[in-house]
Design a protein around this nucleic acid. Sequence first.
DNA 1: GCAGCCTACTGGTCCGACCAGTGCACTAGC
DNA 2: GCTAGTGCACTGGTCGGACCAGTAGGCTGC
Lengths: 248, 248
Amino acid sequence: MGGPRFEPVRTVRAYERVVEQVEEAIESGALSPGERLPSERDLMVQFSVSRSTVREALRVLQARGLVRSRPGDPHGAEVLPFTPAALHKSMTTLARVAELSLAELVQFRMVLDSSASLLAARLRTDGQLAEMGAAVARMRAATDHDAFVAEDVSFHDVVARASGNKLIQICTDVVRSIVLGLISEKLAAAHDRQALMRQTIKHHEEVLAAVRAGDGPLAARLTRKAMYDYYADYVPDGERPALRALLE
Amino acid sequence: MGGPRFEPVRTVRAYERVVEQVEEAIESGALSPGERLPSERDLMVQFSVSRSTVREALRVLQARGLVRSRPGDPHGAEVLPFTPAALHKSMTTLARVAELSLAELVQFRMVLDSSASLLAARLRTDGQLAEMGAAVARMRAATDHDAFVAEDVSFHDVVARASGNKLIQICTDVVRSIVLGLISEKLAAAHDRQALMRQTIKHHEEVLAAVRAGDGPLAARLTRKAMYDYYADYVPDGERPALRALLE
DNA sequence: GCAGCCTACTGGTCCGACCAGTGCACTAGC
DNA sequence: GCTAGTGCACTGGTCGGACCAGTAGGCTGC
């Protein structure tokens, strides 16, 4: 005690410094979506590093979904508007590497979508209500299974939007596409598909009615129930109790 | 019609092919955490690409949190066990670029943590119950504010773990750290900190009692209430109704 | 048998080069 | 005068080679 406390020196790679600076410029708004970065050859002068270093930095920024570069483009890399693509990628990786079960994913959807319904029941605008009704109508009119699923998705999307919470909206979207990617083939091959579709439409109409009536808790409960009925068949028996724990 | 239908050729960069192959090997389990990739010079032979290309691919894999490389390490890049670091990074970026408000983040926490409490009330083991009790005890004994927050976090962490859902556990962790990062300085400067800490301990005791009693809905409601009381002061007036919509 | 050095190899960075693709300015034709 | 076509300057993608600092494990000398 008493002497100066030395901290371990963290060696920072050159490309990381480049990433940091560009990232900061984008996140702070100094660079807006649609704007262009200088060319790689310009950047190597500005940062006084080699082109390899610049390129490695750009690869990282690209992997994070912040920029995109096309060969031959004379304007340099383009700053992208935000998309949940990076979030989607890392969550998909998570699902595989952390060995997330279908039950866990469905359970997560039950939590998120029911919360979205709860909030939507209080906060939805009349226009969003009309959009939900239109989506259900298109579900009823859908002839093939793909179109039906697409309209199903669009219904849930409107509800998530109506919740007023962008994070809920994005996460429902990401998790939903992961779940659908896992079992889309099983869904398409489901026996008695007509009955399933009829039941799904009925569930959606009930949720819509609850949202229209402003009954959030009911809308949330119906959403959980609908999701359980829709996915339970694909979840192993032993993991279904965990899903039912959300139904009470 | 009638002629062969040609599809647009998607040009795939060489480094992307390398990323795909390594990623597949890791996610399929052919490469386990702790194992090493061949050296960059070996990889450039195996993939028959240049070292620059190999390095760009490794940068992407590193950005995704799948591997790590240290200069001078004679064993090559290391395959990492899964960490939510990449998810954390992309969600932090999301929070800044998509301009997520504190209210949205807190609302999301209310949704996730209350669901964790709900599930924990049914699925917790006795050991986890004891851990929760110990965390609350350490909160009561904490002398400085940092330690108090740390124990608070560990309580919520046990609850999330007890929910049995890894996705809930990871997301609560990620969102919590983002929220705390946003307002940690405000929390530390809060006036009447003693009263706040006492109230927080009381809230946690109530949640713990509900979890112990197996009353999921009560535990969930108490969790939402506790979180609202803790964070509402830092949320702008106009956005508080959206939070209260979850309290009913 | 052990402590300490040595070396072979690693990743990080730089340089220079070539290629295919792109957009723009310029030009030839109307 | 205006448009359609062409060439060019520059882009990003990839390659090869080079040098450096750092590491680990084998080797040497004690």
